[in-house]
Design a protein around this nucleic acid. Sequence first.
DNA 1: ATCATCAAGTTCAATAATTGAACTAATATC
DNA 2: GATATTAGTTCAATTATTGAACTTGATGAT
Lengths: 169, 169
Amino acid sequence: MERTSFAGMRCSLARGLDRIGDWWSPLIIRDLYLGVTRFDDLVEDLGISRNLLARRLKALAANGMIARKAYQRRPLRYEYRLTEAGRDLIPALLALTAWGDRWAAPKEGSPMLHEHAACGCRFTPQVTCSACGEPIDAGSVMATRGPGGAAKAGTKVLARRLPPPTPGR
Amino acid sequence: MERTSFAGMRCSLARGLDRIGDWWSPLIIRDLYLGVTRFDDLVEDLGISRNLLARRLKALAANGMIARKAYQRRPLRYEYRLTEAGRDLIPALLALTAWGDRWAAPKEGSPMLHEHAACGCRFTPQVTCSACGEPIDAGSVMATRGPGGAAKAGTKVLARRLPPPTPGR
DNA sequence: ATCATCAAGTTCAATAATTGAACTAATATC
DNA sequence: GATATTAGTTCAATTATTGAACTTGATGAT
């Protein structure tokens, strides 16, 4: 049967995953970000089936993550570029990559390093609190009910259990 | 055919995705983190097929993300808890959730809000530079070759194109 | 002119994964 | 003795993923 859609769930993680679309998409987005933007290059880089890549690119475009642009005429050829939404996903993918570096890196070490243009340093992406700037971890975060929450598929049990937000924050 | 494994790719994003396992897994991990830890509660909360949940829980346990623990005897009943690797994934999932809030939230608003226990504020997870602390975006990050990089499936083209790291950083 | 090449896909058959519904097993409660 | 709870397993139907071969439109070489 068709895979269950996460688009209607009352959970921004589920809805975000639904926009991304499938398992190959984060790698496609990473490749576009790093400059591998053409169909045949993506096939060669990722080892993905041409058939599946074509469908994924269409779906990502339909979801507003990427856009197809002609880079030459005669013969007409297209490449793919990230939209604003797609580019905005990059920091989250970098946070995931950093987790992969910590828990699943090859024995030779990290496949990729990152430098921050603004400060000129090699760095590790960190997830921090927008209020105090400190790195966050599972133990220091409390989830509360938001205005868009509902006890529907995806958060049926959760929505009932989440506490209301602390007043005055 | 069997889904292509990302485990051997020379890319920490791909290897990380492979550990997570599949599309339902981030939601399962979120639920375990938020206290929905029992089989039937997960089925009800997510609307996932019982059959598939059973397989996903086994795979996540095999990947070291979760652990099964008995919470009572007579009758013997189990619940699932995040391991250290699983808990360490939460900040990255929060970064993804924040992206979902920005680009895919329901019209009523965010389904869930977050408070930081350390500073007492409501906040948005941000991905920042570990060196200077500033928020990062796609334009301010440069990727370079790391020691574990290789022109294998998953980064065949990329590994050839990435610049070497800037010396002395 | 003809032939091979390139880039961006499409078409096809085989295999594997997801789904929903029904079933099992061990205890506890009415 | 009958029903409820909880954590799964089994099964058939439907989709999705895969890899290989094919298509299309144009360029460059012989």
